[in-house]
Design a protein around this nucleic acid. Structure first.
Length: 485
RNA sequence: GGUCUGGUGGCCGAGUGGCUAGGCACCGGUCUGCAAAACCGUAUACAGCAGUUCGAAUCUGCUCCAGACCUCCA
């Protein structure tokens, strides 16, 4: 089965053909670590985790590179633009790397909870300064960058004469000139749309490295080009990220690669859409985001209850990655119920008694789910298919249909493969359910107490015996009961 | 202003020319001491207008509305 994937570059779904099968190079823009990971971050994490899992299931040997941006990401592109990490560090009186490490850990914790597989390589921008400097040198040597007050800028106009700047985002350079004319503080740049490859650090700037041009730091777009080339080669298969990165970030990456190496690096550009809240993009700059921790704990004014990591994952997978997905308590609650129903059905499989013959065709499950996922990661269709099987499983349990032992084994194997291995959904089980457990035990024992009060001894003994069998010891007292596991 | 998406039933969300996903919620029924679960069934929809077509949610045009990007954002 072949993967069909939407390529932003061509605005079409294309059959995926790796450059060097069976190897696949996948690069995805990770977070800039200056704040807590939020629901928006979960989207690309899960989307490309699904792609990673699917590619592996298709027997490709995948090298998945997901970077951590810990330097170079400016607040804006003007000369006075402040590095995001440095700014946060100043605010909290910390070493910049302290900030970066803290939020990197927070990000890793959150993605682990979402059952996102670790990337093959998770490089830090700050660990690849040399590679970035080397790439800037190449661009300068090829005549596509100029120096200005110790900073190096990419000469977009010159590049655009030979190549097409804007091919990914559909942007035209002449239009852009008008749109951004009003910004001040760009005296170092020849044109407003030129972007920084290397920035000279101001005296108070802490994060700085030596370079042939000045003590400074690399521009944001450099890191992905440099690290992608380092770990995946000058030519690789897939580059992913959020749609909001399409311009300027990814556009600049293309220009940098062409300017440095004479060819484009990426074959397939894949972009996930945004999560919205009340129809508006959820984003740090808009201040309307909900962090993942807030979701997991329910501590946010917009949340009526906590939502588990798997509920979030299921919620995101219920939409196709190229559509916007609107957040609401109602939608999350629906996702939670649906997820629970799916998990319950998987447990029910073990209770089905095999029959001599099957009235169902088990082979279709895996086939249809794989076909859906291979069609541009259509996880909603895969999930819809799963729910048809949830119904079938329940019917089998009710003996409205029959299944033989062999098919039953296949059914279980395939459904676990789709749900756990591909979609990455796992049973959250009893973790952290102590309150529920003790609540349940108390409730049972209170019921038993009522039975005892009514002298319904058979019931009360039955409850005690069954609970004992489950490992709950009941101790009667004069005025009630004690219990322990 | 430029570029680009999208508007599907109470909510979320698939679906690119006929066969009208799926989840959640609702309603009726079966089952059940009651409840829950499960099963069976019903209902509700394609922003508007015009056009193409035997036939359009799906194609074309226009209108309205919403959103994204054009400064940083996943």
């Amino acid at each position: 089965m072949k993967l069909n994937i939407y390529n932003t570059l061509t605005r079409k779904k294309e059959i995926f053909e790796p450059l060097k099968p069976p190897f696949v190079g996948l690069y995805v823009c990770g977070p800039t670590v200056y704040g807590d990971p939020h629901l928006g971050h979960a989207r690309p994490s899960i989307t490309f985790d699904l792609l990673f899992r699917l590619l592996k299931a298709l027997d490709y040997k995948v090298r998945y590179v997901r970077n951590i941006t810990d330097v170079g990401h400016l607040e804006n592109d003007a000369d006075q633009g402040e590095d995001k990490i440095a700014k946060k560090a100043k605010l909290e009186a910390l070493e910049p790397m302290e900030v970066a490490s803290y939020y990197t850990n927070r990000y890793r914790d959150a993605t682990r909870m979402l059952n996102v597989l670790p990337a093959s390589i998770e490089p830090l921008a700050s660990g690849h300064i040399i590679e970035q400097i080397e790439m800037v040198k190449k661009i300068i040597d090829n005549g596509y960058a100029y120096q200005s007050n110790g900073s190096i800028y990419f000469d977009v106009e010159k590049y655009n004469k030979k190549h097409l700047y804007g091919k990914l985002s559909g942007r035209v350079i002449d239009d852009m000139q008008e749109g951004t004319r009003s910004l001040d503080g760009q005296s170092d740049k020849h044109n407003s749309f030129d972007f920084a490859l290397w920035k000279k650090a101001s005296p108070e700037h802490i994060m700085r490295w030596p370079s042939p041009w000045s003590d400074g730091f690399p521009g944001w777009h450099m890191e992905c080009s440099a690290m992608g080339a380092k770990y995946l080669g000058e030519n690789f298969d897939i580059h992913g990220g959020g749609m909001d990165l399409m311009f300027p970030h990814h556009e600049c990456e293309i220009a940098q690669s062409v300017a440095a190496n004479g060819k484009e690096a990426v074959r397939y550009w894949v972009h996930n859409n945004m999560i919205t809240i009340n129809g508006q993009k959820m984003g740090k700059s808009l201040g309307n985001f909900i962090t993942l921790e807030e979701l997991f704990t329910g501590k946010h004014k917009l949340l009526t209850q906590p939502f588990s990591p798997m509920t979030i994952r299921f919620f995101i997978l219920q939409a196709q990655y190229r559509s916007t997905l609107d957040f609401s308590n109602e939608a999350l609650l629906a996702a939670q119920k649906g997820y629970e129903r799916l998990m319950a059905a998987i447990k029910t499989i073990d209770k089905i008694a095999p029959a001599k013959t099957s009235t169902i065709d088990v082979s279709k499950l895996k086939e249809e789910c794989m076909a859906a996922l291979c069609d541009d990661l259509n996880s909603p269709i895969a999930i819809a298919t799963l729910f048809e099987w949830v119904k079938t499983i329940n019917q089998l349990h009710d003996k409205a249909q029959t299944i033989n032992a062999e098919d039953l084994a296949t059914l279980k194997k395939d459904i676990l493969f789709i749900v756990e291995d591909l979609l990455g959904l796992k049973d959250e089980g009893d973790n952290g359910n102590k309150e529920i457990v003790s609540g349940l035990v108390e409730m049972l024992l209170n019921m038993r107490q009522e039975a005892k009060d009514n002298k319904d001894w058979s019931t009360s003994d039955k409850i005690r015996d069954k609970m004992a069998a489950l490992g709950v010891k009941v101790k009667d007292r004069k005025d009630g009961f004690d219990w322990e596991v």
